[in-house]
């Protein structure tokens, strides 16, 4: 599902198309294309982003800051961070384990396993929340048992963590599987043959090779973990100051017509998105630099 989010490091090589008559469009076509693309970009991406900050600051900095330091907002921020701090490492460990098994070994049903790992991306977030209600809710499979033992999962923090785990499940694995498959296992085999143990091989051989892909997956996983709305909304119960994450807090404020406050909290999430994009772009540059062939001595620009 997130096939479109895999680490991609294409350098800007537009010049090679613009420099040749055969791969160039007439100037008016070029600027029409750019114009239409940028209009679409502005209407659908740029303006919504600007609108968040504009609406947030509409009533001034004081209202803005007051919305952010409100106890309910602070508790929402705390809960969002808690969910991410639990979900991201768990899915990171899973991602590494799954990628190790899939990329370094051959076994039957591998393709099916890869498809199953992708499954959470194609399930609607609302359905993702619903499945945990069906398992752990008052009318669910374990409902009575949980009630007897006074354990609350749905409408409590554990439910929110579970829903977050589900929706962010594939991020790291998806990123690492193709990367590690492409790298093969020669380097690891050499390390083992030379006497390294499994952990040494992983830390000193595999990890340096996959670090950018790993970081990339973690950054995207974290963004989704902190921003998830649908799945969390189903299991949260919307108890103010207790089971509201930041996106849910935004919804409540918005539905109470406290627009400035809603956008203030939303602006924090938008900032998080921007930071995510900056880190993502930075990783792409670093990864491209690492991938570039080290022999810089040859004449530049001459295709082999």
């Amino acid at each position: 599902m997130a096939g479109a989010t895999t680490l991609h490091t294409g350098a800007d090589r537009a010049a090679r198309f613009e420099g040749r008559a055969a791969t160039r469009e007439p100037t008016w076509v070029k600027w029409t294309f750019i114009g239409v693309s940028l209009t679409f970009f502005t209407l659908f991406l740029l303006l919504p982003l600007i609108a968040v900050f504009h609406e947030a600051l509409r009533k001034g900095w004081e209202t803005y800051l007051a919305a952010l330091v409100h106890p309910d907002a602070l508790s929402a921020i705390r809960l969002t961070l808690t969910a991410a701090v639990i979900a991201v490492p768990l899915n990171l460990v899973f991602g590494v384990a799954a990628a190790w098994a899939i990329a370094k070994f051959d076994f039957r049903g591998k393709q099916l396993l890869i498809t199953l790992i992708d499954l959470p991306f194609s399930v609607s977030p609302v359905v993702a929340g619903l499945i945990y209600v069906l398992v752990f809710g008052a009318h669910g499979w374990f409902g009575e048992w949980l009630l007897d033992n006074e354990i609350q999962i749905i409408f409590a923090v554990p439910g929110i963590v579970l829903a977050t785990l589900f929706v962010t499940f594939p991020f790291v694995a998806r990123e690492l599987i193709p990367l590690m498959q492409a790298q093969g296992r020669d380097e690891e085999e050499a390390a083992i043959v030379l006497g390294a143990n499994g952990w040494q091989t992983f830390w000193h051989v595999t990890l340096p090779n996959i670090k950018w892909g790993l970081l990339y997956g973690v950054v995207l996983c974290n963004a989704r973990a902190m921003g998830e709305f649908g799945a969390v909304s189903v299991v949260s119960g919307h108890i103010r100051g207790e089971t509201n994450t930041m996106p849910l807090h935004v919804e409540i404020l918005y539905n109470e017509y406290q627009f400035a406050a809603a956008f203030a909290v939303a602006s924090l999430l938008a900032l998080l998105a921007l930071v995510t994009l900056v880190i993502k772009t930075w990783i792409e540059h670093r990864s491209a630099a690492d991938d570039a062939p080290p022999q810089e001595s040859g004449p530049q620009g001459a295709p082999a």
């Binding site: 800007d12 982003l49 921003g227 935004v250 939303a266 994009l277 993502k280």
Partner: peptide, 29 residues
């Protein structure tokens, strides 16, 4: 991919905004 124009890097980076921006924020914006 094919053209050079001002602000291209920014546009390229912001294309992923819908992946990074929480859906509730996108909705109210």
């Amino acid at each position: 991919v094919r053209y050079t124009f001002p602000g291209k890097k920014l546009v390229d980076a912001l294309v992923d905004l819908p992946f990074a921006l929480p859906t509730a924020v996108a909705g109210i914006a």
